[in-house]
Amino acid sequence: MATPDAAIIIPHYNDPERLARCLQALQRNDLSGVDILVVDNNSPQPLTAEQARFPEVRFVVETEKGAAAARNRGVAETKAPLLFFIDADCVAADDWVAKAHEAAPTADLIGGRVDVFDETPPPRSGAEAFEAVFAFNFQNYIEVQGFTGSGNLVTTRKVFEDVGGFRGGVSEDLDWSTRAVSKGYKLIYREDLVVSHPSRSDWAALRHKWLRLTQELFGVNGNTPRDRVKWALRAFAMPVSAIVHAPKVLGSEKLNGPVEKLRGLGTLFRLRFQRMIWMLQQAAGQEI
């Protein structure tokens, strides 16, 4: 077979319904010269039905756990010079592939917009309201903080091989894109490169997300005594940040009515206090 122009790499673990939705959305794109790889992290639920439904997609099993290992395996399985990363629970816009091709020559790493949608009927829960206001601000990540996520990422094989693969056990998006930028590679944001991601529907799902992120961010922070002191100081800033961000929730046009705004506000304070507790435990050398 001829070498494809680009490869779409999708890490997956035990979420076949959302994966099918992701693949359906990609089928609405122009996929000429594009290799689609689903890298499954050895899910207990087999993807037999999805393989039959999407015969043009290549399905690969990676037994090493974690999205980092899955993405690395996907890159190894294709020779395509362009690499497009999307997550299995994301929904690509109908022109996502075309926009990825268009953006690829403009920079070494391109991150796009990630919109949030709800999978449950209104009104929003506190978790959904919080995510509607705060989740996936990729423009801020890229243009202010200097990193991007890998759920909507365009890069090249040349860049990937020079930077090295994603690393598990840390905030892999932050780690990989920071390494790339430190090597002098150009990172930009593209508003027209769009995917959508479902909001976390309840406190348990939101808590799980931020527990994982807090663990990963501590891995990037460092573990020396000085690093721990800095982490503790960041922990004490969490409640203050809730007060600072409260007007953003109350004034958000994304939230409908006082019920959603009050639920979002309550979740904001609950989450920031929870993160403070986790971070202080980490600073003290405890597992969370």
Rank of each mutant, 00 (worst) to 15 (best):
Q281T: 09
V114R: 03
D15F: 02
E253A: 15
F134W: 04
E64G: 06
A127T: 05
A232D: 04
V170D: 01
A235D: 03
V240W: 11
R179K: 13
I188H: 08
D115S: 11
V170M: 01
N137F: 13
Q282I: 09
Q281L: 11
A2D: 13
N221Y: 14
L109V: 11
E191S: 06
G264D: 12
D94P: 13
R228E: 01
N223A: 10
F85M: 13
T156K: 13
D115V: 09
L193N: 04
V60C: 03
S125L: 03
T178N: 05
P46N: 03
A232P: 09
F136H: 08
Q45R: 11
D30Q: 02
F134N: 02
F84Q: 02
W231P: 00
R263A: 08
G222N: 10
W210A: 00
V170Q: 00
H12W: 04
I86N: 10
A6E: 07
F59E: 05
G66A: 05
V38L: 13
F134S: 04
F84Y: 05
W231M: 01
D5G: 06
R207V: 01
R234N: 12
I110A: 03
I142F: 01
Q281M: 14
A204W: 13
D30V: 04
H12Q: 00
K248I: 14
A7I: 07
S241I: 05
R53Q: 14
L271I: 10
N29T: 12
E143K: 07
S241V: 02
A100S: 07
L206D: 06
A68G: 03
C90A: 10
K99L: 01
S150I: 07
M279Y: 05
P225H: 07
V57L: 05
N72Q: 04
S177K: 12
F84S: 00
C22V: 12
T106S: 12
K186T: 13
G169C: 07
E102P: 04
L206V: 07
E131R: 09
A69H: 15
Q274Y: 14
A232F: 13
A284V: 03
K79N: 14
P121Y: 07
Q45E: 13
G126L: 03
K99I: 12
Y141A: 14
H197A: 04
G111T: 14
G264Q: 13
V34L: 04
A76S: 15
S252P: 10
D30L: 00
G222T: 11
I188R: 09
N137D: 15
T267M: 15
V34I: 15
V154Q: 00
E102C: 01
R275Y: 01
V244R: 11
T3H: 03
D89W: 14
A205S: 06
F54E: 03
V244D: 13
A88S: 15
